[in-house]
Computed example of a mutant assay.
Amino acid sequence: MNNMQSISPEKCAEFIREGGVAAFTGAGISTAAGIPDFRGKGGFYSTGRYNPDTVFEIEYFKTNPKPFYDFSRDMLEIVDRITPTFTHFFLAQLEEMGLLSSLSTQNIDPLHQMAGSKNVICIHGSYSSMNCLRCGKYYGLDASLEYIRSQDVPRCGECGGLLKPDVVFFGEQVHGMNEAMQEIAESKTLLVLGSSLVVYPAAILPQWAKRAVVVNRTGVSIPTVPEQYMVERELDDFFRQVAEYVF
């Protein structure tokens, strides 16, 4: 690993207590809560209910949206049964204490918000709202979830047009890249949690950090970051130990 060092929970806590912390989270923090990944064994695509080449393709969605909504209902049913992880709550508490200034996530689930995080940049969008592709009518979180759960293919109550959640499809621009880049560049320490940094363009964001602490099951290196540390452990196991030195 380039410039990669090991780090103890106590040293990580020391960085966090300095403040100016940003976080970048990937699928690993959600799978730890019980949400399957996409392509792994037991993942969403292994069910055969949706084609991985088309379910998140925007032009396909416009002509055949049902597979995407089948996926969405499956995921939301899982979210209804689970709770955020210790690490989700830990990040929310750091924000409340003024130690963590921003949180950027690649995930489309609402677990960070459920844990209490406020300043969340959802790079790949979320289910927090929907818009009609015909008339542009906006629907908030509660209405969006109700439409998804009650209709095979949600349609606008005003014009009958197709509704699309604020989830980023292939062929669409990701959200908040400039804001996330600025937050990370201005931070003292970036926590990179549960991401293998292989999904672009979001994967380039950690390269703007001055100092990065990467916690993931497998090793990850971030080009251009002068000071970086690697922890190959389960997120909750590591941050339970870190929390003992922070609080």
Results as ranks from 00 to 15, higher is better:
Asp74Thr: 11
Pro65Asp: 00
Ile35Phe: 08
Glu57Thr: 02
Arg39Asn: 01
Gly34Asp: 07
Asp74Trp: 13
Gly26Asn: 03
Arg17Tyr: 04
Ile35Cys: 05
Asn64Lys: 12
Glu14Cys: 03
Arg39Val: 12
Pro67Tyr: 01
Ser30Ile: 06
Phe61Thr: 00
Ile58His: 04
Ile16Ser: 13
Tyr50Arg: 04
Ile35Trp: 09
Pro36Arg: 01
Ile35Met: 11
Ala33Trp: 13
Ile35Ala: 09
Ile78Gly: 11
Phe24Arg: 09
Ile29Gln: 02
Pro65Val: 00
Pro67Met: 00
Ile58Tyr: 10
Pro65Tyr: 00
Thr31Tyr: 13
Pro65Met: 01
Thr31Trp: 11
Val79Arg: 07
Val55Asn: 01
Thr63Asp: 05
Ala23Ser: 14
Thr31Cys: 09
Tyr50Gly: 02
Phe24Trp: 07
Val79Ser: 14
Thr25Cys: 08
Met75His: 11
Leu76Phe: 09
Arg39Cys: 05
Glu57Tyr: 10
Phe38Asn: 03
Phe15Trp: 07
Gly43Gln: 08
Phe71Asp: 01
Tyr69Phe: 15
Tyr50Ile: 15
Asn64Val: 06
Thr63Phe: 04
Gly26His: 04
Phe61Ile: 00
Arg39Gln: 05
Phe71Pro: 00
Ser46Trp: 11
Val79Tyr: 10
Thr63Asn: 09
Phe71Ile: 02
Thr63Ala: 10
Thr63Ile: 12
Arg17Trp: 02
Glu59Lys: 11
Ala23Glu: 05
Leu76Tyr: 06
Ile16Cys: 14
Glu59Ile: 01
Ser46Met: 11
Thr63Trp: 03
Asn51Ile: 10
Lys62Ser: 03
Tyr45Thr: 06
Gly42Tyr: 14
Lys66Ala: 15
Gly43His: 06
Ser72Gln: 04
Ala33Thr: 10
Asn64Ile: 01
Phe68Leu: 01
Ser30Asp: 02
Ala22Met: 05
Thr31Ile: 11
Arg49Gln: 10
Asn51Thr: 08
Glu14Tyr: 12
Gly26Asp: 07
Ile16Met: 14
Phe38Tyr: 15
Ser46Asn: 08
Lys66Tyr: 14
Ile29Glu: 05
Arg73Cys: 15
Phe68Pro: 00
Val79Thr: 13
Val55Met: 06
